[in-house]
Computed example of a mutant assay.
Amino acid sequence: MKDVYITRIAKFLPNDPVDNDGMEEKLGILDGKTSKARRIVLRNNRIKTRYYALDDKGKVTHNNAQLTKEAIELLCDDDFKIQDIQLLSCGTSSPDQILPSHAAMVHGFLKNGNMEINSVSGACCSGMNALKYGYLSVKAGQIERAVCAGSERSSTWLKSEVYEDEIEHLKELNGNPILSFNKEFLRWMLSDGSGAVLLEPDPKGKTPLKIEWMEGYSYAFELEACMYAGGDKEENGHLRPWSEFPANDWSKKSVFAVKQDTRLLGEYILEKGVNSLKLTYEKYGIGPDDVDYYLPHISSYYFKDGLYNEMKRQGIEMPLNKWFLNLENVGNAGAASIYMMLEELVQSGKLKKGDKILLHVPESARFSYTYAYLTVS
C-alpha cells in the first residue's frame, strides 16, 4: 500500500463577498416583506460575509460544475496540468441536475482527456467521501494523481422564486403566506464555493500533508432525516420523494427547496458528533493531545460552544486554541467547507513539519460524520 499526500490545494469563491444586509437583495424578498427569521438566524450563526454565484442583478454567474472546474484549474500550473489528472472525484449536495452525474459535468468543462470519474452524493460529508475515494485509489496504487473536490451552488435553491408558488397557494388556503421556519432557516445559512486537492503518493510541494487515515459513521439506522430536499417529511418521519407528488404540487409545496428540521438538529447533531469522535479516538489510539489543529465544519457559531461543552461532557475536551475556523468570512458552503478551511490553514503559514491536523465533518441530512487525520510532512 502507498502513502498518500495532499500536495496541492485550492479554493474558489465566486464574485464579491455578500454582507448580511445584502442577502435579501441577492436572494429576493418573500411576499414583499423583510424576513424576521433572517435576523434571528444571522444573530445565532454570526456569519458576516458569504459568496453567491449570482451577479448584482441576481443572475447566475456559475453553475456548480463550473465552480468546481475553477477550483481544479487553480491547482494547475506548468508542473501539473489538467491533462495529468488520472482520477476526478467530486462531492456535492447541490448538483446542477439529476443526470448526468456531477463529476461527469465537471469533466465536461475541464475537457482534459479520458480519465476515471467518481460522483459522491449526500450533503456536507460528500466532499470528504470524494476525498476518501481518491485516497484509497492512490493508496492501492491504482493511480498516482487524483483530484478530489467539494462544492456547492446553493444560492439558486434559496432564491425567492423557489417559494413564490407556495406563498400564493398559502394565501388562497388561509390568507397567511408565512413559510415554515424549517424552509426559511437555510436561506440564511448556506453559500456557494468550491475547493479541490491533488493527491499523490510522494510528499511534493511546499506543505505536503500525509493522510494517515479517514473514518466515517452514520446514525441513519436510528435517526430520521433532518435536512432534505426533493421531498417532504410526513408525520411518521418518513420522507415522501418528489417522484410521488403530482407535478403541480412540486412548486405549491416547495418540494425542491432545501429544508431543515431544527428540532432534530439541536437534539442530536452535537451528541452524535462527539460520540463518533470518541469512537474514532478509541479506534486509532489518539486523543486531543495528539492534535495540533482541529478543523470542525460547523454550520453556525451557535454550535461552537455547544460542541466544546459536549466534548467536555464526554471527556474528550479539545482546547479552543487548537480550533481553526473560517465560517465568519466565507459562510457555510457545505461539502466545500472543509476544503476551504484546510486551504486557509495551509496558506496561513502556521504549519510546521510534524503538525497533526484533525478534520471533522458532520452532516445533518441523516446524521453522518467523517474524519481525516493529517500530518504535515
Rank of each mutant, 00 (worst) to 15 (best):
V4D: 11
T7S: 15
F12M: 09
L13T: 07
P14M: 08
P17G: 11
V18Y: 09
N20K: 12
D21V: 03
K26D: 05
G32C: 09
G32P: 09
S35K: 02
A37S: 12
I40W: 02
R43T: 09
N44R: 13
N45A: 07
R46G: 01
T49Y: 11
D55R: 04
V60T: 12
H62I: 00
Q66A: 10
L67R: 02
L67Y: 04
E70T: 03
E70W: 00
A71M: 04
A71I: 05
L74Y: 03
F80C: 02
F80E: 06
Q83K: 14
I85M: 14
Q86D: 14
Q86C: 10
L88K: 06
L88M: 08
C90V: 15
Q97A: 14
I98C: 01
L99C: 12
P100E: 10
S101F: 12
H102P: 03
A103L: 08
A104P: 06
V106F: 05
E116M: 15
S119G: 13
A123K: 11
M128N: 07
A130Q: 07
Y135D: 10
V138L: 11
K139A: 14
Q142S: 14
R145A: 15
W157Q: 05
W157I: 02
L158H: 04
E161F: 01
I167V: 13
E168M: 06
E168S: 09
L170W: 00
G175W: 07
F181K: 10
K183S: 14
R187W: 02
L190D: 05
S191A: 15
G193Q: 06
A196Q: 12
V197K: 09
V197P: 04
L198P: 10
K204F: 11
G205I: 08
T207Y: 14
P208V: 08
W213G: 06
G216Y: 08
S218Q: 10
S218F: 04
F221D: 15
E224P: 08
A225P: 12
M227D: 02
Y228I: 07
G231C: 13
D232M: 14
K233T: 09
G237F: 09
L239V: 09
R240Q: 14
W242E: 14
E244I: 00
P246I: 00
P246H: 07
A247Y: 03
A247Q: 11
W250H: 14
K252H: 01
K253P: 00
S254H: 01
F256H: 13
D261Q: 11
I269W: 05
I269H: 08
V274H: 01
K278E: 08
L279Y: 01
L279R: 12
E282R: 14
E282Y: 02
I286M: 10
G287A: 10
D292P: 04
Y293P: 01
Y301A: 00
Y302F: 15
I316E: 04
E317W: 00
L320S: 08
N326R: 13
L327K: 06
A333C: 13
A335P: 15
A336M: 06
Y339E: 03
Y339Q: 03
M340C: 12
S348W: 05
D355R: 04
